[in-house]
Design a protein around this nucleic acid. Sequence first.
RNA 1: GCUCCCGUAGUUCAAUGGACAGAACACCAGACUUCUAAUCUGGAUAUGUAGGUUCGAUUCCUACCGGGAGCACCA
Length: 575
Amino acid sequence: MSTLEKIKENIAEAINEALKKKAVSAADLVYPPRVEFGDLSLPCFGLAKELNKTAVATAEFLVGKIELNDVAVAAKAIGPFINFTFSKTKLAEGAIGEILNEKIKYGLNKIGKNKKVMIEFSNANTHKEYHVGHLRNIAYGDAITKILAANGFKARPVSYINDFGIHTAKTLWALQNFYKEEKSPQPPFVKGGSKGYFLGKVYVRACQELENNEAGKAEVAQIMKKIESRRGQEYKLWQKTRKWSIDGFAKIYKELGVKFERIFYESEFIDEGLALVAELYKKEFLIKSQGAIIADLEKCGLGVLVIIRSDGTALYPVADLALAEEKFKKYKVDQSIHVVDARQSLYFKQLFKVLELLGFKQELKHLSYDFVKLPEGMMSSRTGNVITYEDLRSLALAKAVEETKKRHKNWSEKKINEVSDKLVNGALKFEMIKVGADKIITFGLEQALRFDGCTAAYLQYTGARIKSIIRKTRNAKLATQIKYEMLNEAKESAIVNKLARYPEAVAAAGKNYAPDELAKFLFELAREFNDYYHAVPVLKAKTEVRQARLALISAVSQVIKNGLGLLGIEVVEEM
RNA sequence: GCUCCCGUAGUUCAAUGGACAGAACACCAGACUUCUAAUCUGGAUAUGUAGGUUCGAUUCCUACCGGGAGCACCA
């Protein structure tokens, strides 16, 4: 339990003792909106009812009865609230001491109790573009994985790549029909693009060419059947191009520093899925309708889920059912989380209902988030109205390099690139994460490429400033006995309060599946530090004060590092 | 038509049912012989409408008005 949690427990206990019954818990204590009110507050509205008094009278009645201690040193009734004030020294000693002692482990908890959770995200398609929509998915999924792990879950990140859908046939069709002239083993690159990027362009072409082209659509269906049969030239081409996409994904994951424990492919599960579907069809769990095989979920208010097309080819749920079985039986997960865009809410309700009807008892969760659109309108792979990951990254990198060079004329190319890389990862991820999952992101390029305001760069910069100060102490060890009573600036106690709340921020982010809450928390902490930085000198202070301030800012640096880490963002020593 | 999501400042976003609705961007005015100015300080503007529940509603409920998404062979 963290310092602050212990304090809250103690206060709740003291209140209960004063009342001679268990009336409040630590969770009833809230943080006052203004510093003048104190450090912690009990709203007395609930108690007032129990005691049959007004809330104001309750606060006044109770405040004198509460026994204080050496941490909670004052209690004052202000209207219907009882406001507690902490000993600044004790809180600083507890919180900073804890941070400097636990380091990277500060803020972790055991709420998850080793529950095994598989988090599936970055479910991209081969033969299509990887764009900013996928970026939101991967940033969110990765942050959720790390946050759940910090909350004591056994979080297992996996990805499920759809390499066997009709889109692959469309891309191959266009490749064969419109890119034949390209005899070289290298595909006709869009300047600077990878092969995977190129396939994305081919897919767009395919969609355009197939519009109102019935003959073409029939050819695509033929190609799909050939791919499914896993024989012939088309299958070979499928294998080759599939690898282009997969290599492209691997490169992206490496750049972003996102790791998966396992990457599943639809093509691995399709046969198992088809067998499962055949069995379910035999048992009349699935039925034939209009030539297709469906799950009729009308009774549950979920419409119908088409599983096999009327031409006999498989749809998405086929492999998804087999994959779910694999997760539960082989990987023995307690919970399966699917990080997928909100537009697929109905699909997941249907899929989960089918799994439930099949008798699976494990927890299934569709962690949905809203989509990313462009100022000009919806993104669409089909029309090519997208910002691809590669384009975005190279723009961001150019900007980061430019900004870094401007400030550090003597840095080597290597150092500039290393720092720029971290800035780019931070900028891209933070931009996607800082917004609540239920908000549509209208992706503005200019805004995304900013390095000021509420951005990762601001946090990284704050960290770098602190590191710079610490370097100037020539890495002299912190005094073993820090005199925390030296931290008596108002700005210092604001920072200490914030630091002490970090473990709660981690728990809340996990409970609500909300990395944005953590992002906001870190931004606020950094803002408080930067304000302090301008107002209060560290290195110039007298020895004992300097030691205490160094301990404080080291703790800030540690918490920024820990928090950003949970968002998948690295800190930098200098920038 | 049915279902779901969202309406807060010029813009993009905050606010476990709590005290005076906060930031960022943009705009204006300031702060680098002083620990990194990718920073800081100061300045104006906002809860779609109408009801209800509550001591208290941006938050919960109902209706309406806007915007978006989904609803059988895309994923």
